[in-house]
Design a protein around this nucleic acid. Structure first.
Lengths: 245, 245
DNA sequence: CCGCACTACGTACGGTGTACGTAACTACGA
DNA sequence: TCGTAGTTACGTACACCGTACGTAGTGCGG
């Protein structure tokens, strides 16, 4: 009787060690670390149950004793890297600075783990580190005098914006992985197609933009900073707090 | 000699009909329509080459005469539904209103095709309808006196925000699909876990928020409108345009 | 101390994308 | 006009995926 029937549960509520049987040979942490390592080096698509099991050194199906479904493995992975936030003991009192710092940290983590942005859209949820993160953000926003719902919205927007930004950057690079040709070739081919289309004259505004763009090379870091700054301004411009609706 | 070697190319540059051989029995449009239909009804995971081929009525491998790789099928699908934007002949002259309208249309399309948000993160690119969309947005932003790069940023932010918002909504619902238990059960289980965690006292701010939140039930439409409004404000507040940097 | 829950793991099933070979067909170059 | 080259159609096959299930061994709770 293999008692691992599929029952509704949250992975975080499942105790790592049940009392009865023999000691597990591996820890959940081992598995998640291996999964993160594989995803970092070989891409998220290389994270298969067989591969992780081999990495750990156990049989494929043994993994299912630790992780009921692969989706749960993703959730564990997201939580693991969410632990990389360095959250000081106390907020600084300047919520704008704190949230900006959070945004930069999020971006750094997503750069460190290029699979994060894609997996996060699937593995949402209130993992331990997600709760820690949320709690800290709310702490930062104590000085901001707006309804609680608006604070949640602010946090969600900051996270969403960082994710959308990084995901967009990475979609271009990540696409190259596993393709039968190189990224340069891909960009050349796509660029050539774009230029050909624009040259057709059907897109005058776009043509104008492309003609103007090279004159103003931009620093992605600066753009990022501006974007976040703008976003925070929209919740409480430097002059004073906005009232909700 | 099956001459379909994997060479770098953009699907949009590949002509639908090559001169030489027999007439293709199907059109690219047929295939993409079938794929969109299947994705709409049975979810994006049901879109497999075998399934689409069966839907069309041809052998699996025949599809590869029309679509070199599955990823290209995704790109075709995204372009197809991007054709659903109703773009008037001329912008209204009120760029704020125009961009708000765009955001609402994007959201409507993503609701109509729940797979879009997830696939878009993979299949980006300058498809014909994407160019048409971009060109129209740039036309709307002519009255806005900011550098071209900033306009692109605005468009990207609006799109990204809509996408992140809808993706977040749908991740919750979509997760239920294909799970061995119902969505209600899932929510109950997750909710119970969350409450248990908050009750532990480790998350005072979060606890406060949850205590306050039910008192203010919110309309998702209203939140969406506010979010987009705020975003546009951040580029040019009602008082007057911001200067870049 | 018995029994049962749990661990470990091999096998197997139904699915995936797609490389490759083959046969029929048509438009172009000689 | 007629090969012939390139295209279409499609069956077979391969490597891989997630995971259901059965079985054997282990060690704690009653």
């Amino acid at each position: 009787m293999a008692g691992r029937a599929a029952e509704p549960e949250v992975i975080w509520a499942r105790p790592e060690r049940a009392g009865r049987g023999p000691k597990p040979a591996y820890s959940r942490r081992d598995i998640v670390d291996a999964a993160v390592r594989v995803a970092d080096t070989d891409g998220i698509d290389a994270v298969s149950m067989r591969r992780i099991a081999a990495e750990i050194g156990c049989g494929t199906m043994s993994l299912y004793n630790y992780v009921p479904r692969k989706e749960d493995l993703y959730e564990l992975m997201v939580d693991a890297v969410s632990g990389e936030y360095a959250l000081p003991e106390e907020p600084s009192g300047d919520w704008r600075a704190d949230m900006t710092g959070i945004a930069y940290q999020s971006r750094a983590i997503m750069y460190r783990h290029p699979w994060l942005a894609r997996v996060m859209t699937t593995a949402y949820g209130f993992s331990p580190n997600a709760l820690r993160f949320l709690e800290w953000c709310l702490g930062c926003l104590v000085p901001l005098d707006v309804p609680a719902g608006l604070k949640m919205q602010l946090i969600a927007m900051v996270n969403g914006t960082v994710m959308a930004t990084v995901a967009n950057e990475q979609a271009i690079a990540e696409r190259a992985r596993g393709l039968p040709w190189s990224e340069e070739e891909e960009q050349v081919v796509r660029g050539a197609y774009l230029m050909g289309q624009v040259a057709s004259g059907r897109y005058p505004h776009l043509a104008g933009l492309l003609a103007e763009a090279p004159a103003a090379p931009v620093d992605p870091d600066e753009i990022f900073a501006m974007t976040i700054g703008r976003l925070l301004d929209s919740f409480a411009p430097p002059e004073g707090p906005l009232t909700a609706a």
